[in-house]
């Protein structure tokens, strides 16, 4: 890989009172690549997502965007760079229809009057290019299934043409078939050249869609694996802490993406 990473974190630390939530965490995201962020509860996954999305900035550390130093202090900063986040709660307005949710906050209008036809047209186009199957874009989001809602939330995050997409446990509430649809969607988004950070507990999902897995344990990096070569046992033992850290790091060290 010759391009610099889209997003690169180094030495990220964050402390909540007496708890060291993150310590010297490193992470790199490249265009067209899915990185899974794995780790046990309390390992610092959500904290790291909040650092990147600007919801909870880091105390220390360096963030580089396409090779240049940036500061992400507010969610707005992350948006401006091109970082989109889909939170676990999805943050949708149940009473609005799919079109309304997709364009929420960026409605197409002429002097304040909504252009519903144009918005619906683009919404249909987006749903079609992403092969998302929903009964009707004019349906209130409340009437959609969990998987469909998740798909709508992800496609909404793509509206601003971001370069990095953060997904917080997108498959947690989904059934088997919905999960496989969602993984297809993630691959499609990846193929459009986006960098994706996928928080997940599910080893199956990680194996299916991720290129690399970054494991956090107790707020520190605890290994970076190439999904195609690493065994599931290796990853799991790294998550649970059963693995010998030195070995894990040595494995990681052979990975060129790791500095």
């Amino acid at each position: 890989m010759t391009f610099p990473p889209v997003l690169s974190l180094r030495g990220i630390s964050k402390r909540f009172g007496g708890v060291q939530a993150l310590l010297d965490v490193e992470l790199q995201l490249r265009a067209g690549e899915v990185v899974a962020l794995a780790g046990d509860n309390g390992a610092g996954k959500s904290t790291l997502i909040k650092v990147i999305s600007g919801v909870g900035p880091a105390d220390r550390g360096v963030i580089e965007w396409e090779g240049r130093l940036v500061h992400i202090k507010r969610p707005h900063d992350a948006h401006a760079l091109g970082i989109a986040t889909v939170y676990q709660d999805l943050a949708m307005c149940d009473n609005l229809d799919v079109v309304g949710n997709l364009f929420l906050g960026r409605e197409i209008d002429r002097v304040g009057i909504l252009d519903e036809v144009e918005m619906e047209r683009r919404a249909r186009e987006l749903m079609r290019t992403l092969s998302i199957r929903i009964p009707d874009v004019r349906m209130p989001v409340a009437a959609l299934s969990a998987g469909q809602r998740q798909a709508v939330a992800i496609s909404r995050s793509l509206m601003g043409a971001p370069k990095v997409l953060l997904l917080d446990e997108p498959t947690a509430a989904l059934g088997v078939e919905q999960t496989s649809h969602l993984l297809d969607l993630i691959e499609q988004v990846r193929d459009r050249g986006m960098a994706i950070l996928l928080i997940s507990h599910n080893m199956g999902d990680i194996k299916a869609v991720a290129d690399r897995v970054a494991v956090l344990r107790l707020g520190r990096n605890n290994g970076l694996f190439d999904v195609s070569t690493a065994s599931q046992e290796q990853i799991i033992s790294s998550i649970t802490g059963a693995a010998d850290n030195a070995v894990a790091h040595r494995t990681a060290g052979t990975e060129e993406a790791w500095p």
């Binding site: 969610p75 709660d89 943050a91 949708m92 307005c93 149940d94 009473n95 609005l96 309304g100 929420l104 906050g105 960026r106 409605e107 209008d109 304040g112 009057i113 909504l114 519903e116």
Partner: peptide, 24 residues
Amino acid sequence: RRTRYGRKVYALGGGVEAARRAGV
């Protein structure tokens, strides 16, 4: 129903957090 402003009102009723994140 037809203006940007009205959409904000409905959005607020549909979910405060969602509306806030959308810049309302």
